[in-house]
Nucleic acid binder design. Structure first.
Lengths: 210, 210
DNA sequence: ACCTGAACACCGTTCAAGT
DNA sequence: ACCTGAACACCGTTCAAGT
C-alpha cells in the first residue's frame, strides 16, 4: 500500500503539492509539475491518486489537520478565540491552499473536528440548540471569509495602493470613504481580527441571556 | 472605440463570459471558448482585452454593478438588511462568478459603492469611527463568506449527503454533532441568513450604546 | 488598423505497450 | 503490478503574415 522500494506514496504526492502551492501558488500545482518534482512520469501519479480533484481534496485534508485544537478544559470563549487564531495561522502558512475551504465541500472527519469544537463551546456558553447552530455558522463563515480575504488579496493593495484608490473616488459619491480616510489607511489586520472575535463573542454572550 | 461594423465590443466579450460562467462554470470560461461563441479567432479578443486577468476583473466589475443599492432614505438597519439580501441575490444569479470577490482585490469605484453604503449606515447607527471600520469589515466579510459557501459547495452536500456524513462520525469524538443531528439535517439557508443579519445588527446596536 | 494561421509552451488524462 | 511513451483534446499567448 504505497512505499514499495522505489515507489512514491500518496503522502509524498500531497506533501510536494503543498510545498509547490506554498512556494508558487495554486496555478503551479499541476500533475505534470508534481511528477517532475518527484522524478517520475505524470502517469505514475495516477496509481496513488485518482485525479486532480482527489489531489485537491487531499490538500484540503492536510490543511485541516494542521489546525491545532484548543484544550477542552479552557473557558468556552477562550477556546473559540484560540481556534480562530490557530485557523488563521494555518491560513498564513498556506495562503494558496486555504481558499479551497470556501471553494469545495469538505466531507471528511477532519473537516468536522473544528466544527465540533465550536458547537461544544457554544453549548457551554449557554445557547439553546437553534442558537448553537446559527452561531457556529456565523462564526465559521466569518472566519473563513476573513482569512481568505487576507491571503488572497481582497484586503491587499492589488495593483494600486489604498491611498491611490481612495483618491480616485469622488467626494460627492463617496463622502464616508473620504471622511474615514485616515482610518482606512492605517488598518491592522491582527487588531481587526481580535476586535471582530470580541464582537462576535459579545453577541454570543448576549444571545445566551436573551 | 469598439463597434466598427463587424467588430466585437469589450462589453460583448464580458457579457458572453458571464453567460458562459453561469451556464457551465468558471473552468469553461476560456479565451478560446469565448472566441468560439463570438465567431472569431481567439486572437481577435486581445484587441479588446489585454489578457485573461483583465477579463476576470471585468467580470467582477459587471457582478458588482448588478448589486442593487438600497434607498438612502431608509433606516440604517433596513439598508444593511437590503444590501445583504441584494448581494446574495446577485450571488445566486452568478454562482460561478461571485467567488471571484474573495479571490482578487477589486479596486474600482464599483467595488467601493456597497462599502460606502455600509459605512454610511453604520455611521447613522451611532458608531464611532473605529467601530464603523471594524463593523464594516465584519459585515462584508461574513456576507462574502456566506454567499461563497452557499454557491460553491461548502454548505452543499458534496459527494455525500449530510446524513451520510454525520453517520461516519464517531459518537466518542463528535458528541455535539450527534446531539444536534436533527438540527443539522434540516437547515434552511434563507432563515439562517436572515438570523445572522439580525444577530449582527444586534451587535451593532449594542456597540453603539457601549 | 484589424484579423488570421501557425506556432510555442503548457494543461489533464487515456491507452496500449513495455518491464 | 507498476511504470512508460505516445497521443488526444485542450489551455493562454506571441508573432509574422495577410487584408
Amino acid at each position: 500500500m504505497g512505499r514499495s522500494g522505489t515507489g512514491i506514496t500518496k503522502g509524498q504526492v500531497v506533501g510536494v503539492a503543498m510545498e509547490l502551492a506554498d512556494a508558487e501558488g495554486m496555478p503551479a500545482v499541476s500533475m505534470r509539475a508534481l511528477a517532475n518534482r518527484l522524478q517520475v512520469t505524470p502517469m505514475a501519479l495516477y496509481s496513488r491518486i485518482a485525479d486532480k480533484e482527489e489531489l485537491l481534496d487531499e490538500m484540503l485534508e492536510a490543511l485541516l489537520n494542521e489546525i491545532e485544537l484548543p484544550d477542552p478544559a479552557l473557558h468556552w470563549a477562550e477556546r473559540l478565540r484560540l481556534l480562530a487564531h490557530n485557523a488563521r495561522a494555518v491560513g498564513h502558512r498556506h495562503p494558496a491552499v486555504f481558499p479551497l475551504l470556501l471553494q469545495r465541500p469538505a466531507i471528511t472527519p477532519a473537516a468536522h473536528r473544528p466544527t465540533e469544537v465550536i458547537l461544544d463551546a457554544l453549548t457551554a456558553a449557554g445557547l439553546d440548540d437553534g442558537q448553537v447552530l446559527r452561531h457556529e455558522h456565523l462564526l465559521s463563515t466569518w472566519l473563513l471569509g476573513f482569512v481568505c480575504s487576507e491571503v488572497s488579496g481582497r484586503f491587499g493593495i492589488g495593483r494600486s495602493p489604498v491611498g491611490h484608490r481612495l483618491a480616485a473616488l469622488s467626494k460627492a459619491d463617496f463622502p464616508q470613504h473620504k471622511r474615514l480616510r485616515a482610518g482606512l489607511l492605517r488598518r491592522d489586520w491582527d487588531t481587526e481580527f481580535a476586535a471582530s472575535i470580541a464582537a462576535l463573542l459579545n453577541e454570543i454572550g448576549a444571545a445566551a441571556t436573551r
